[in-house]
Design a binder for these strands. Structure first.
Lengths: 192, 192, 192, 192
DNA sequence: CATGAATGAGAATTCATTCAT
DNA sequence: CATGAATGAATTCTCATTCAT
């Protein structure tokens, strides 16, 4: 009945799962460890989620939604698209750079068989904001006339790789590097 | 009994592992299943690989090397770089599209904690061909003056996402789509 | 709030337990399911019964008593014993045939280690009506001079098996079949 | 490969399961206890049986077959049916009296939802010997013209109850009691 | 070298029971 | 009295790995 407490527990389970999986992977993150880290009993997890798989999928949807929201939070539709895209692109890199657990978890999920457990609707819904963002730009002729799906793939794919590189620590990325990366991306997708 | 047979067995184990993991993921691909699919006894796998982790890492190195070789197999250094890059980019997409098991396995590996089990040298060595390819282009001023690492990330990241999209089957990619994708990438990285 | 409601709740718990156990067995009938089916909270069950075992035992005693009462409800001591026995035998078969949940539950209980949790007195008391019924018949020499316990066993054992057969649905039992079954039993136990 | 050893292990698992379940019931007989009692590792059980349910069902089929064989082992078709039936009936009581674990296990199984997990063919096959035995007697007019299924039910049902009574220890059954029980049964089923 | 039965630690999950509200 | 979230011990089952043959 206590919604605050409920929220706290579910949130704690999410957080613990995120931390463990982002670090150790799906199969080295036993429910017992999740429980311990979340300060709940193992059985409690099963009040909130039917199974480990369901917990993982729910966490994906939750974290995916949250990051998309965050990435678009400073979007100003009144600005020129190039500026909006710049903000989007850099914010994406920045958000995941400062939230590496989210990043590692999401990437792991998207590149594993788990992704195929999601409902088609969920996948579509999660992608919607980016889809709309880029589709409108194609429509208004600011951006190359390519199927938005392809645009999304290329833009997010290149960003993901950059984030991975940056997080790896093997390469120190300056803000000038990021600026160049943005131009590399932008010059590719803008209407030639 | 002889090296040929050994090779066959090792190859069979690799193939079985690839098929299982690409489809079911790391966990959900028990050694007993690998053995069954490879037509060898479970214990036999341990003559060729110290552990499951080692098998998986060896498979990664093996398949990574093979795909890089394949992607560069038609590279003609005498041609203009733009042509070479076009061939490289489209061949990458094509190779993984026609070898989805390899693609799914490699992506899963690279986005999981397994990647950190590899030796630094291995990682560097595997990346070397692409690194050299792009570094030279930067050096000869055909391509934007960006750290090659960043270039690699952006190019391969966008290609990966395209392959994933294409393999998902949810979007039918025509050769004209691919051509546009190539230009999108090229216009981004070429010297402005 | 009041005794009526109490009665209702206890009854609802009994009914839910009966339905679940008769269908799924003792394990596979969790208290949480019982609670759900009875429309009470899990904790509420523990106001009426100390434990699951106690609930099950109480349900046995309750349902056993009820069925014995029902089976004897048309007994007319003024009639000849053969008629009374016929009515008893056929009513037993009929009662359980029309109350299969009760039957399956009672049989499961009696053939499981649960039966040994009951107090000796309870067992004796539950059996008393049948015991008296048959003992008197032995005494008045209408029935073979066999220890009543043995008579009870044979009569109820054959009836149980018939009910099981009939409930199984694999054999359609006509009223003439039942009549013959009665004679088979009667001719066996009557004074030769 | 070692068939003798294999046999020993499977047999040991069967024996351990029988002892535990006959005494404690299905749900108080954990696989870990079975393993301990059988002197094998828990995992070993799963080499022989896919699941606990399958183990239990296999044990039922195995023990059922064995007891039927035993009950008929002294059957002499050249003798008059009455004698054969007497031997059958008393041997049934005797066999289970001297093999109480088998009896308790079989009864528990047959009166639980487990029975419905068996294949129809298995059930028919297991019953076949008794069915043939009684059907022939009906055919040759030695026994009442009742559907054999009903005969089986009545005969085995009464025998089961007698065995239960005898095993309970609350009633000391003499051989004269058994003789009377036989006549009670026989006089019921014989052609009047 | 090859086998595959056997191991047993460890994983996911269940569920009777409790207790703060 | 009633609730049902929370507990955590117990249970089933999996699977990487070993080793006698």
């Amino acid at each position: 009945m206590n919604t605050v407490k409920d929220f706290d527990k579910k949130e704690a389970i999410f957080q613990a799962t995120l931390e463990l999986i982002s670090k150790h992977g799906f199969h080295s993150s036993p429910m017992s460890e999740v429980a311990k880290k979340a300060n709940v009993a193992a059985g409690t997890i099963y009040h909130y989620f039917k199974s480990k798989d369901e917990l993982i999928c729910a966490l994906y949807v939750y974290k995916r939604e949250k990051s998309i929201q965050n990435i678009f939070k400073n979007d100003d539709p009144s600005k020129p698209f190039k500026d909006r895209f710049r903000s989007f692109y850099l914010q994406m890199i920045n958000y995941y750079y400062t939230n590496p657990k989210e990043f590692y978890f999401l990437e792991q999920f998207m590149n594993s068989p788990y992704i195929s457990m999601l409902q088609k609707e969920d996948i579509v819904r999660l992608e919607q904001p980016i889809y709309d963002f880029l589709r409108k730009a194609v429509f208004t002729q600011v951006v190359r006339d390519i199927p938005p799906k392809i645009l999304i793939a290329m833009v997010t794919g290149s960003a993901s790789s950059l984030i991975k590189l940056r997080l790896s620590g093997e390469f120190l990325m300056t803000s000038s590097d990021l600026e160049m990366a943005f131009f590399t991306c932008w010059d590719g997708i803008k209407k030639p």
